[in-house]
Design a protein around this nucleic acid. Structure first.
Length: 839
RNA sequence: GCGAAAGUGGCGGAAUUGGCAGACGCGCUGGACUUAGGAUCCAGUAGGUGCAAACCUGUAGGGGUUCAAGUCCCCUCUUUCGCACCA
């Protein structure tokens, strides 16, 4: 179903005037600078941040959903009296802008600014409480200057280095990708196949922080899922480094193993073709064609393909041997495709009896299998095994360790080797350093100059930022675009003044987004990245909100850079994001909205026809924030009907309500029906507080308002109520604007004003409830017999337990059911139920 | 393969601590009002049997603990996500 465009006949349709209301309050908030937050260091702060968008030009429903959540939180915190900051900006460097510019023969700088303007307008039309005075856009020189400064600081602290190696290469994006940015062998952004290419590039030593990045204790509330993903990614494993030595030269060959207990079972050594020793043997032995061919083949194989699990293990005997330090065994060295150079020490001691990969390899090439861990039955034999034995067992063929259980033997053997200088206990991580060079134009230039005499020279602070030139012919070449700008490339060496060249790679855009949350604290600072006091007032972000797709990449990089900034004493806290909410995406027809699937809903359409409040209520009501939610045109109508019902309730009864608010209810005079409504007011408020503030489950908070609204609407002819009843009624309707405010702020402000309350809704504080109104005269008890509901009764709350038991057995249907049966047990759950067990 | 999360009406979802399963919304059915609307109001809506009272079945499937299980335990299946020759 498609919505027809603008309906002008509002009166007749009895729709509330959402357009006027939304425009009015957006202007009002703006005029009052309600969301332009001051750095009021004497006030308790609350920093709400939703991940900033890439300026694609249109906000889609996923964005709206995301920012509706953060705005709800921000407004709730405003009601609570916090000094709330909710900034917004744009992650505006990156490939899409560059590609778009190539296609349309324009310039990414221009298209990006146009997109930002367009999106800014859309943000305004949604009425989010954003502090635009703090806007940050990563492609603007006043921002990226400090990214370059940060790069220099990292370099000065020895956390940046250059390395040539095989890199993940995306042909379609024409650039290198970090390991985190490769998903199942495909590019995280464009999904095309990733290949390997040898390149020299810049790395950040994120591995220096690996240990600290594993400490999640400073996170108050991070989803376990995200923590697990990061832990897996960092991949810490404890083990032992063992020094084998090359036969002949005696040079060390270090291996890393998590199974030192199997050291006596080593029957060969496995090295990757990239291993320096292998490379040396190739050079020394140009005649060994078989070895050359094999190494050449494996090195040029796709790395992703090569490390896939189902790839067959292959190898070739190198002709060399090494010596096992524990027993002097002479061990063949094989060059294989299943060992990778960049994990551990890049060398594996192969124990076919107790490692499945080694087992398969040994079977294929007829290498010996030596059992050193026996099972309980002691019936393992090398001849009869069909798979490696990896279960716990007892040491055999292991010299003085024979008979020990293998688990304690790990430590014993490691200790013994350590004392003999054969090895040492060590820790290895799966995490690799972060490759940050990108061979693209639309990114932050790396502030480095290459001088023939002086080598790598950093651009001096006074020359920052290295401005990204605008006269670049994008898309004219497959080479790095900045290479084609001579006036950019050619410069003079800051040290010796001779001609020199600039670095033409730009930084990964994840660098830009790794510190923006701190820049929001002081976005206009031209003298430093940000003022420390301001940053320390605002940081950490109290509530961060974003998609699960950033669980590893962005969130790990940002934590790393934040810790680095802490080590520079720029910030004090250890973690940038105290609480994290990973919101679900908005799907349509069960799939993520995307242009290619043709299932995109343009929020503008909904806002024009039903209003921003309706859209926000719909999105928040659809499901809990962290779950995906399915778009539904009918659901939007439901939200719209709800707001119309609220509007009608208050507008049509406005006189009575205003009168009722002046009255004091004497509880004695309130009729039973109105006592129920009084209960609803306080009970709803209680549930609303619990759901919205404590549980952050806005769908049920909204459901509670709807339920309460149904109770209010059920009151007919309120103007005819007596004073006590009218006072109760006025209170019941009067709390609705506050309850609605975080989710539908425009209509909430309008109703608040209509009802004659002072100031704006948030200044009224959080709504409160009184326990005394939650006490009921009569309580509903359910009577269960053998677990089935067989009766109900209404009794006074202070009824004694014996009496309750007695009454329950008197209920008609209960009497009938227990007739002629033996009662074993009667359990009373105070305030709830009576449970009877019969035979 | 390893790890994690999830599975509830026609649909989105609720049930917060083991205590009336299906709140709330959508959709649907019937009715009212009509200036015929994507409006409003009333009633109904898990499935089944029944005139009704009421009864039976039911939270992926199977077992268990308990007076009481969507919730706790064991097994199986399915889906989603993450990791995956990591030594």
């Amino acid at each position: 179903m498609e919505f027809v465009t603008q309906n002008t006949d509002k009166e007749e349709r009895m729709e509330y005037p959402f357009q006027d209301i939304e425009k009015k309050w957006q202007k009002n908030w703006n005029d009052k600078k309600l969301f332009n937050t001051l750095d009021a260091t004497d006030k308790k702060k609350y920093y709400v941040l939703a991940m900033f968008p890439y300026p694609s030009g249109i906000l889609h429903c996923g964005h709206v959903s995301n920012y509706s959540i953060s705005d709800a939180i921000a407004r709730l915190k405003m009601m609570e009296g916090y000094n709330v900051m909710q900034p917004m900006g744009f992650d505006s460097f990156g490939m899409p802008a560059e590609n778009y510019a190539i296609q349309n023969n324009s310039h990414p700088g221009i298209t990006t600014e146009d997109c930002i303007t367009a999106m800014h307008k859309q943000f305004d039309s949604l009425g989010f409480g954003l502090d635009w005075d703090r806007e940050v856009s990563t492609c603007r020189p006043n921002y990226y200057k400090w990214g370059q400064y940060l790069f220099k600081k990292l370099y000065e602290k020895g956390l940046v280095y250059r390395k040539t190696s095989f890199q993940n290469w995306c042909e379609s994006c024409q650039t290198v990708l970090a390991n985190e940015q490769v998903e199942n062998g495909h590019c995280w952004r464009c999904d095309s196949q990733v290949t390997q290419k040898e390149l020299e590039q810049w790395y950040f030593k994120i591995t220096e922080y690996a240990e600290e990045l594993l400490d999640f204790s400073k996170m108050l509330d991070w989803p376990e899922r995200v923590i697990t993903m990061q832990k897996n990614w960092i991949g810490k494993s404890f083990g032992t480094e063992i020094n084998f030595s090359l036969e002949g030269t005696g040079e060390p060959v270090k291996v890393f193993t998590t199974r030192p207990d199997t050291i006596f079972g080593v029957t060969f050594m496995a090295l990757p073709p990239e291993h320096p020793y292998v490379q040396r043997w190739l050079a020394e032995d140009p005649e060994n064609k078989a070895l050359h061919d094999f190494c050449h083949k494996v090195i040029n194989e796709d790395k992703i393909e090569r490390t896939a699990e189902n790839t067959t293990k292959e190898g070739i005997f190198s002709g060399r041997f090494c010596i096992n330090p524990v027993n002097g065994d002479r061990v063949q060295i094989w060059v294989t495709n299943y060992v990778v150079m960049d994990y551990g020490t890049g060398a594996v001691m192969a124990v076919p009896a107790h490692d499945q990969r080694d087992f398969e390899f040994a079977k294929k090439y007829n290498l010996p299998i030596k059992i050193v861990i026996q099972n309980k039955e002691h019936d393992l034999t090398a001849e009869t095994m069909t798979a490696a034995y990896v279960e716990p067992g007892f040491q055999v063929n292991s010299a003085q360790f024979d008979g020990m259980e293998n688990e304690p033997a790990k430590q014993a053997i490691t200790d013994w080797m350590q004392s003999k200088g054969m090895g040492r206990q060590t820790v290895t991580y799966r995490l690799r350093d972060w490759g940050v060079s990108r061979q693209r134009y639309w990114g932050n230039p790396i502030p480095v100059i290459y001088c023939d005499d002086c080598g790598i020279v950093l651009v001096p602070d006074k020359d920052l930022p290295v401005l990204l030139p605008s006269n670049v012919q994008v898309g004219k070449t497959t080479r790095n675009p900045l290479l084609s700008v001579p006036e950019f490339v050619n410069t003079t060496c800051p040290q010796c003044r001779k001609a020199a060249r600039r670095e033409t790679d730009t930084m990964d855009t994840f660098v830009d987004s790794s510190w923006y949350f701190a820049r929001y604290a002081d976005p206009k600072n031209d003298n430093e990245p940000f003022n420390k006091d301001k940053a320390n007032y605002w940081l950490p972000v109290d509530q961060y909100i974003g998609g699960i797709e950033h669980a590893v990449m962005h969130l790990l990089y940002a934590r790393f850079i934040h810790k680095f900034m802490r080590d520079l004493c720029w910030v004090k806290c250890d973690e940038p994001f105290a609480r994290l909410l990973t919101q679900g995406m908005v799907t349509k027809d069960g799939a993520k909205m995307s242009k290619s699937k043709g299932n995109v809903v343009d929020p503008k359409y909904i806002i024009d026809r039903f209003g921003a409040d309706t859209l926000r209520v719909f999105l928040l009501f659809a499901s809990p924030p962290e779950k995906d939610s399915e778009w539904s045109d009918d659901g939007v109508m439901g939200a719209f009907r709800f707001l119309n019902r609220v509007w009608r309730l208050i507008e049509t009864n406005l006189d009575a309500l205003k009168r009722g608010m002046q009255l004091n209810a004497n509880i004695e005079d309130v009729s039973p029906a109105m006592k129920d409504l009084l209960f609803s007011s306080h009970n709803t408020t209680k549930k609303w507080l619990e759901d919205s503030i404590h549980r952050m489950q806005y769908n049920t908070a909204i459901a509670a308002i709807m339920e309460h609204l149904n109770h209010c609407v059920a009151v007919k002819e309120p103007e005819a109520l007596n004073d006590a009843d009218l006072a109760v009624y006025a209170e019941a309707c009067g709390i609705i604007p506050q309850l609605l405010y975080p989710f539908a702020p425009h209509i909430a402000e309008e109703l608040w004003q209509m009802l004659g309350f002072e100031g704006m809704v948030h200044s009224g504080g959080l709504p409160g409830y009184e326990e005394r109104y939650l006490v009921r005269d009569r309580i509903n008890y359910v009577i269960q017999i053998n677990g089935k509901v067989r009766g109900k009764m209404e009794i006074a709350p202070d009824t004694a337990e014996d009496k309750i038991r007695e009454l329950a057995l008197e209920v008609d249907n209960v009497k009938k059911t227990i007739e002629g049966k033996t009662i074993h047990k009667v359990i009373v759950i105070p305030g709830k139920m009576v449970s009877i067990a019969i035979s």
